[in-house]
């Protein structure tokens, strides 16, 4: 356990987030509760050191709201699409596994994109190549080459919106350039 690793875990943002979860779990905002939560977070960070967080992420509130709004709409659309596929009798769904190369280079973005993709229309992640930043997406209701290209466009569109919301400046440059 190196000193650097320990410091990495104990960023103010991480500590604050964990304490907020602790208080929410108890459902009771009191001084004693906050202090107990903080002590527990410090103890946990010492016992279970984590890799240092990535630097350079920016939270852009307006883009975040835009992302969340669009995400909520897509969540509903995804359920509607799957429901249609479930009750379409007589024909089995036609699917495809599509490789998509991401432009952002951070683990956090890769994780967030993979999480969000499984909840928006058409896609479930089945494999991730971290070294090349490639996602393999299983897509429902794809019947031709054009559909495959559409899946690629959708994934890259989601990436752009997510990077605009929370990505680092260098990722944002890469995403906006292409």
């Amino acid at each position: 356990m190196s000193g650097r690793t320990r410091r990495g875990t104990m960023t103010p943002g991480f500590t604050l987030g964990m304490v907020i979860i602790w208080v929410l779990l108890w459902g009771d905002l009191s001084v004693a509760n906050v202090l107990a939560g903080t002590a527990l977070v410090v103890l946990m960070a010492l016992l279970f050191p984590q890799p240092p967080p990535e630097r350079g992420q920016h939270l852009r509130p307006l883009a975040c709201l835009r992302f969340l709004g669009r995400f909520a709409v897509e969540l509903v659309q995804a359920s509607a699409q799957v429901t249609r596929a479930i009750f379409r009798f007589g024909r089995e769904p036609s699917c495809a596994v599509v490789a998509v190369d991401l432009r952002s280079r951070s683990d956090l973005m890769l994780t967030l994109i993979a999480l969000a993709l499984s909840l928006v229309p058409g896609s479930v992640i089945i494999e991730v190549r971290r070294a090349t930043g490639t996602l393999y997406v299983h897509s429902l209701d794809v019947s031709d080459q054009e559909g495959i290209e559409r899946v690629r466009r959708q994934v890259r569109d989601l990436e752009r919106r997510l990077v605009r919301a929370v990505g680092s400046t260098s990722d944002l440059r890469r995403v906006e350039r292409s």
Binding site: L75, V76, A78, S79, Q81, V82, T83, A85, I86, E92, P93, C95, S118, L119, P121, V124, I126, H138, L140
Partner: peptide, 16 residues
């Protein structure tokens, strides 16, 4: 018909 397509049902309508 198979696990991959079932995952779509388990992820989307289930979460919403």
């Amino acid at each position: 018909p198979d696990t991959l397509t079932r995952m779509h049902a388990a992820a989307k309508p289930q979460v919403l």
